[in-house]
Computed example of a mutant assay.
Amino acid sequence: MKENTNMKIVKTIEEVRQCVKEWRREGLSIGFVPTMGYLHEGHQSLINRAGENDRVVVSIFVNPMQFGPKEDLASYPRDLERDSRLCRDNGVDLIFHPEPEEMYDAGFCSYVDMSVLTEELCGISRPVHFRGVCTVVLKLFNIVTPDRAYFGEKDAQQLAIIKRMVKDLNLNAEVIGCPIVREFDGLAKSSRNTYLNAEERKAALVLYGSIRLGKKLIKDGERDAAVLIKAMKEFIQKEPLAKIDYLKAVDAMSMRQVEKLDRKVLVAMAVVIGKTRLIDNFTFERN
């Protein structure tokens, strides 16, 4: 995508709606990439895919509602100048960068709760997380009214949850998942990678190493989920700096654990390296 020297940065819901109204009047399609900022090549790939629309909107909002009381809300990396440069260089038309007070006023008391899909994986150790994600994404969809919205497959559970919310609540947006973008050595791109020191950065490769092992076992014919997960866990546990939050094989639609790899299965993990919680995954689909 070409640099957009006319890109706007707005902070209010009304400004977004005014831009969208003008675009709709011209019959233009809108692609939307919701982010929490500190953008990297993974976000860039979403923005580039969103370029299939006439206009591209990126939100940059560190959503307080999806952080638990002991999580990294205050320390989450922020750099609007850097983010703006990446967006401008990749053809973004509008950045929506609201303050928390713009999204949640003093009397805010309406939330989106979901069952089943939120009860496994990240939902166990981060019990308030998906309530916050669903609530803010619904609000952003209502503000931006995109034709298509783009999310990374690294957050596979989040992607499945948002697709289900859109279906259940009859939202008029197509949700598109985009492939995981990795560093040269396989580590999945993440804003939280900046927390890792040199030793932890090296240790974090154990996530991708376990994925490679899991894929090889499947390629060699393994279909027993317990055997697969046991082997992958043992691989990760050899790394002293790694502590497994979860590593599970689940149905890619329902997020329920499976015993056999006999359908589309998501193998997902969250691993703490030092003090940094990282996630990664891969999907197996039977031919």
Rank of each mutant, 00 (worst) to 15 (best):
A188W: 02
G37E: 01
L94W: 02
G51L: 15
L159F: 07
Q237Y: 10
M269N: 01
K238M: 11
K248Y: 14
A50E: 00
R49H: 14
L213K: 10
K233G: 09
K11H: 12
R17G: 10
K230Q: 13
I30H: 13
A268F: 13
I211Y: 00
R82E: 09
R25C: 10
A226S: 14
I95E: 05
N172R: 12
D72Y: 03
L169W: 12
E153Y: 03
V112G: 10
M103G: 09
G37W: 04
F32M: 06
S110R: 14
A50I: 08
P64A: 08
F67I: 00
S84C: 08
D224G: 11
A252W: 01
A204M: 02
E52G: 12
Y195S: 11
S75N: 10
V265H: 03
R182C: 00
R49P: 06
K238P: 03
S191V: 00
D262N: 14
L171V: 13
D105T: 11
N281Y: 06
L196A: 01
T145Q: 14
L86P: 02
I229N: 02
S125H: 08
D83W: 01
K21M: 15
A231T: 01
G132C: 05
T12L: 11
F96R: 09
D185V: 03
E174V: 09
